[in-house]
Simulated assay, not measured.
Amino acid sequence: MAAPRLSGAFAPAVTPFTPGLDVDFDAYAAHCLWLQRHGAGLAIFGTNSEANSLSLAERMMLLDRLSGRGIDFSRTLPGTGGCALPDTVALSRHALLHGCAGVLVLPPFFYKGVSDDGLFAYYSELIERVADANLRLFLYHIPAFSGVPISLGLIERLARRYPDQIAGVKDSNGDWANIEAMLRNFPHLAIFPASESFLTRAMPLGAAGCISATINVNPAAISALCANWAAPGAAAAQQQVDRIRRIFQKYPMIAALKWAIGHARGQQQWQVQRPPLSPLSAQQQASLLAELAAAGFAMAALEQP
């Protein structure tokens, strides 16, 4: 029997580090649980998770340790894509061992100008080597970062060849025309725009929800809008989540999210990022705080375990 279609709001959970640049696991697990308790799924090891600053061993370790912390893996979609096919295979197999809902797979992003034939071969080899009927693969279209777009033609070829494995797409291009084309051409796939700002346009066309950076700080409101996009008051809810997103978009996104989380929880170590990324300046921190206060925004409290 086919797996249920994944839907809702998913956070590319940000990754806290210690001053020594190790992963702060306790803070990480607490944040993941907080997100799920406020209605969000987890797209761990995403772009805003600093996934490409994490080693293969670290990603596997984090999944292993999360399994003892009450995380709902049926609402967890880890990023497993990398430049080396064997790494992507290993991470994807590891996610399946934990019963994750699927895997979100970047194209191999070092070589640019590769053909759809080459990308088809990469994803095909991944599926064949994982060799697990439970694999649900979500293609990750983020050409601004990867430099390697996932075309509509490639999606069609893969979905036709692997109808049980190709489950959906995350579209991080920010181009409404491309999102709309995906929704109209692939109604059987779970299409996730990468911003909540598209929800009330995309959900009527069959979007599955969104996978958005700002779910890290605003999970309840965005999850509620995913579920209630046709209800009275949805337009006002859309305007409010848009307002908060626009504030964060003015700053380096990862640094802004981490500062806001650390400020709300009184945990300054949240500002640490692995080089080459840098935290917000004091001026940026003050400006962000003032804008969030003017918008009446405050993060929900972190519950104690």
Rank of each mutant, 00 (worst) to 15 (best):
T200D: 11
G262E: 04
P163S: 05
A260S: 10
S212V: 01
A27W: 05
D132F: 14
H38K: 05
P143C: 09
A95F: 05
T200Y: 09
A13S: 06
C100M: 08
A230S: 11
A190Q: 05
H98D: 05
F109R: 12
F198G: 00
A159T: 12
F145G: 04
G41P: 00
C83G: 15
G266K: 07
R245T: 13
G82C: 14
G39W: 01
R160Q: 14
H263Q: 08
D175E: 15
P232I: 07
Q283D: 10
R65M: 03
A230I: 09
R75A: 02
V272Y: 09
A256C: 05
L119E: 03
R265A: 08
R75E: 00
G81T: 09
L91E: 06
D171N: 11
P163M: 09
I179V: 15
M60W: 15
A181E: 06
Y251C: 03
F248C: 03
A144T: 11
Q268P: 07
F73Y: 13
S53G: 01
S287T: 13
G209C: 09
L66C: 09
L42R: 04
E58R: 01
H94G: 00
A101Y: 04
G41W: 01
N52R: 08
C83M: 11
A220C: 14
D72E: 04
N216M: 00
Q284L: 06
A144R: 11
M299S: 09
L91K: 06
Y251H: 07
L33W: 14
S278C: 14
Q284E: 10
G81K: 06
A230F: 11
I142P: 03
I222L: 01
P219F: 06
S223W: 02
G82N: 10
D164W: 10
C83V: 11
L158P: 00
F120M: 08
F25M: 05
A167R: 02
C210D: 08
Q165S: 13
I155Q: 08
